[in-house]
């Protein structure tokens, strides 16, 4: 390698984590959407919360390469924690959010300590089992969770004591956007840090990372816990903005659906969730009013096609197109 190309490589790496103008786009769009679609703010808030959930799932799946079928476990724990507090007199949404993150993080840490020792099918099974186990527990502990009827009687106070949650979703939208922004800032910092790079290394080649002395297990537990906290925050957002928690927040369906959403956008690319989640949820909102039964068919077909033809998702395809343009001047 010549000195010049080496310098170029180093410069490229140094530039990797610098903020690009394009990265402002999602936020500009999110703010614009508030003014353009004032009738859809409730859906908007749900999309923003789910986006945070998508980001957290991408950290585990896309960056650390842990194939999980039970990420809803943390989302659900967060939702139930925030919901339970709001139903028992602790109505401050911020406190609910923080408590949800702590609870979900604790579940993530403990389950991570146990299940991240395994690999392949076992890890897939164990993530799944943790999720169904929690759902079954929530189903049976009716005195705490309300069981199959859902959690009753949530009373969420105004955000910071000033902004009351209204039926149009104005407060919900800004609140969700604010939390998402913080979550994104944390996620972005993590993936560009040396810690984040070592996760990618673990995903690509565990043996080599072990050989060069990376504490692989420890790193995995750390990212699993962080991701669980973010998922818990997303669950709390949904609980507080919809004032509703039911058993489906802990379902395997949801764990699968969030994977589908980030796959559509592109896995392991930070902005995959920003494309996939809104696309999926808006399409679902549109199509399921026309034809709720067959929504599953189209989404299933889409999944099969994405795996067969477009493994990078929408962003991956966009990359491929851009590269082709650059190559042929």
């Amino acid at each position: 390698m010549t000195a010049k190309s080496a310098a170029h490589t180093i410069a490229t790496f140094a530039r990797r984590h610098r903020l690009r103008p394009m990265e402002a786009l999602p936020w500009v769009l999110a703010v614009a959407a508030y003014f353009v679609f004032p009738d859809y703010l409730a859906l908007g808030a749900q999309i923003l919360a789910t986006l945070l959930f998508g980001l957290s799932a991408d950290l585990v799946l896309g960056y650390a390469g842990i194939v999980t079928l039970g990420h809803a476990a943390f989302y659900g724990v967060g939702a139930y924690t925030a919901g339970y507090l709001a139903a028992h007199g602790v109505g401050s949404p911020i406190i609910g959010l923080i408590a949800a993150m702590v609870a979900a993080g604790a579940v993530g840490f403990i389950s991570g300590l146990i299940i991240l020792r395994t690999q392949g099918l076992s890890i897939l099974m164990l993530t799944l089992v943790v999720c169904v186990m929690l759902q079954e527990a929530a189903n049976k502990m009716t005195s705490i969770t309300g069981g199959a009827d859902g959690l009753q009687g949530m009373e969420v106070q105004p955000v910071l004591g000033m902004f009351r949650f209204d039926m149009y979703g104005h407060t919900a939208y800004w609140y969700a956007l604010g939390v998402l922004f913080l979550g994104w800032a944390v996620t972005r910092t993590i993936v560009h840090s040396s810690f984040g790079r070592s996760l990618t290394g673990i995903r690509e080649n565990v043996a080599r990372m072990n050989a060069i002395g990376t504490p692989v297990f420890f790193r995995l537990v750390t990212i699993y816990t962080i991701s669980a906290m973010l998922a818990g925050a997303a669950g709390a957002l949904i609980a507080e903005t919809t004032q509703l928690v039911a058993l489906n927040v802990l379902s395997v369906d949801l764990s699968g659906t969030i994977l589908v959403m980030i796959i559509l956008g592109g896995v392991g690319r930070l902005y995959g969730a920003f494309i996939g989640v809104p696309l999926y949820m808006i399409a679902q909102d549109r199509f399921s009013t026309i034809d709720p039964t067959y929504w599953y068919f189209w989404i299933g077909l889409l999944l099969v096609l994405v795996v067969a033809f477009a493994r990078g998702g929408i962003l991956g395809m966009a990359d491929a197109v851009l590269r082709r343009f650059k190559r042929s001047p």
Binding site: G256, V260, I263, G300, L302, L303, V304
Partner: peptide, 14 residues
């Protein structure tokens, strides 16, 4: 996982 999950989803609708 994704491909077979797609098949499961399709089977539900079918």
């Amino acid at each position: 996982v994704l491909m077979t999950m797609g098949l499961v989803f399709m089977s539900v609708a079918i």
